[in-house]
């Protein structure tokens, strides 16, 4: 058993085109470090310093991990992690 991570189209260049990859770890942070060993560069698109990037949504099963514990969210075998780029923008240029 492992943790399945579903990858959005825009990040599949890091996974050789795969829609989902498998990894392991006891927290989301560990899982992303584990995945980065095989899919170099993926983690940097999701994490900035010690935190998840603001415009990336990461869900553990059905919950946005922002409401769970961010990178410290515990994960276990059989869980599914879904990554979706936030859809956002606006008329004021930042």
């Amino acid at each position: 058993m492992a943790i399945e991570v579903r990858i959005p189209t825009i990040l599949r260049s890091y996974t050789g085109g795969a829609k989902a990859v498998q990894g392991s770890g006891s927290t989301l942070g560990e899982l992303l470090i584990n995945l980065d060993a095989e899919h170099g560069g993926l983690r940097a698109r999701l994490v900035d310093g010690e935190n998840l990037r603001r415009f990336v949504n990461v869900y553990l099963n059905d919950e946005d991990v922002r409401f769970l514990g961010g990178l410290d969210t515990p994960v276990s075998d059989g869980d599914t992690v879904t990554v979706l780029p936030a859809v956002a923008g606006g008329s004021v240029s930042g």
Binding site: N57, Y59, D62, L84, A86, V87, A88
Partner: peptide, 9 residues
């Protein structure tokens, strides 16, 4: 604007 994250999923 930003899509609500739960609704987006």
């Amino acid at each position: 604007y930003r899509f609500d994250s739960a609704e987006q999923l």
